[in-house]
Each structure stands twice: as structure tokens, then as C-alpha cells.
Amino acid sequence: MKPEIGVGAFILLGFGCALALAFSSTDVRSRLGGASYSVTARFSNLGELRLRAPVKIAGVKIGEVADIRLDPERYDAIVSLRLSADAGALPADSSAAINTAGLLGERYIAISPGGELEVLGDGDEIVLTQSAIVLENLIGKYMFGNGKPGTPDATAPGADSPSTETP
């Protein structure tokens, strides 16, 4: 009888450990986290944006980058974002920007909600986007005088590329 009890306890312990690990130290919660929908956005430069990078509103994570591919005709990047439905619907004129966490941190997508009454549905596109800021370009522009160092705007992203790209 002893081996049977021992083996039963062994298997129970194993599954207990596996479940505890899955829930305490993997991303299982965000995977189970209810319904989600996906929207796309076009960027002319992704910088270091990677798959599974977080999508945030006001610093709160509401989804992640699900897919990145290149548009072979326009040579810009099409990014699919998987957003949690719990976060509420986004106004259709919301804008997306690729930001950096800290000076050297990871890239993430920050969404600023707009004010329109229409909302983004599954498969819609976020039209207003702002590409990643490439630090080297900024420094280059600053050093070689394109971005007039006297004005407070000199290091703003606007000096590098237009802040909104029309589709």
C-alpha cells in the first residue's frame, strides 16, 4: 500500500508545483485574461519594438504587440496590437506612439485616447501614429545645427520626423 500512497502524493505535489509556478511566475493570467480584440497601426520606423512588447494607456498595460510585418508596397511597418476588452473601447481618433521605458529601456506602444464618439473595433486601424525616436538621428541633428539649439523644442521628436503620419 505504501508505494501507491507515495506515488499519489508525488504526482499531486508535482501538479501542485506546476500550477503554482504557472500562476505565480508566468504570463498565464494575461493569456487567460478574458476577451481581446486586435487593431493595426502603421509606423514608418519601429526602432527596437519587438513582438509581445506592452501596449499602455497612461502607463497601464492594456495589451501587447501580436504581429509585426512589412508592407511591401509602402515600406512601412504594420503592427497588430492585441488589446484587452476589459480596458474599454478606444475612441476612433486615438493615437499610438512608440516610446522608450527610460533612456535605454525597452520600447513600448503608448496610446493616447482621442475624443471621438466612434470607437475602434476588431480589425480597425489606428490612423494617427508616431514612430520611434532614433537617438542617433536626434543627436546628429542637434550637433549639425538642423534643430536650432536656442529653442526649447530642439530635442522634441518633431525635429526628427513629422509627429503624425497621414495614411
Binding site: A18, A22, S24, S25, T26, D27, V28, R29, R52
Partner: peptide
Amino acid sequence: YWAALQGSVSLVDDYGQAF
């Protein structure tokens, strides 16, 4: 500590591969 774990360990790619 726990947020770093949950944010970076993928259920399928890391956790599943271990098994």
C-alpha cells in the same frame, strides 16, 4: 519580483519548453 517574473516568462515558450 513577481511582476518581473509574470512580465517576462512566457507560458508556452519558456515554461512549456522546460517540461
